[in-house]
């Protein structure tokens, strides 16, 4: 019993470290898209690890934490996807180090295809 709780506490600590790294990424990354990526990936993993640790500490509540985990798994990537798409549509510039922009080329190809069909 006691050992399981200790392991759970360490897992929660690992999750909080991931969340801290995500926060650091928000400050250090050069442009919006990199910041979104750092924030989402690190915070999703951090939240999931925290929930797993909480299940170890308090096993009676596993169903509630499982529901929370499913909710986080669905909502977090979707919201970051929507944010990135909206900022791309608002024409926020990429950082200077960025090499390619696949979404831009995809949009151009789609436009050309629609144009070609029309004419």
């Amino acid at each position: 019993m006691e050992t399981l709780q200790t392991i759970g506490a360490f897992v929660v600590l690992a999750g909080s470290i991931f969340i801290f790294l995500g926060a650091l990424g928000l400050v250090r990354m050069p442009d919006v898209y990199n910041r979104i990526q750092a924030g989402t990936k690190a915070s999703t993993l951090g939240t999931l690890l925290t929930l797993v640790g909480l299940i170890m500490i308090m096993p009676a509540w596993w169903n509630k934490f499982l529901l929370l985990a499913i909710f986080v798994i669905i909502t977090n990537p979707v919201s970051s996807h929507v944010l990135a798409r909206a900022s791309h549509a608002a024409k926020i510039r990429l950082s200077k180090k960025t090499v390619t922009d696949h979404y831009e080329t995809y949009k151009k190809e789609k436009e050309e295809k629609a144009h070609g069909v029309k004419s």
């Binding site: 909710f71 669905i74 909502t75 979707v78 996807h81 929507v82 549509a89």
Partner: peptide, 18 residues
């Protein structure tokens, strides 16, 4: 309004009942 993406549509169909 700008059309929203397929991912958001599917996720919203999944999430709204919950």
């Amino acid at each position: 309004f700008r059309e929203s993406s397929e991912i958001l549509k599917t996720a919203s169909r999944l999430l709204e009942p919950i």
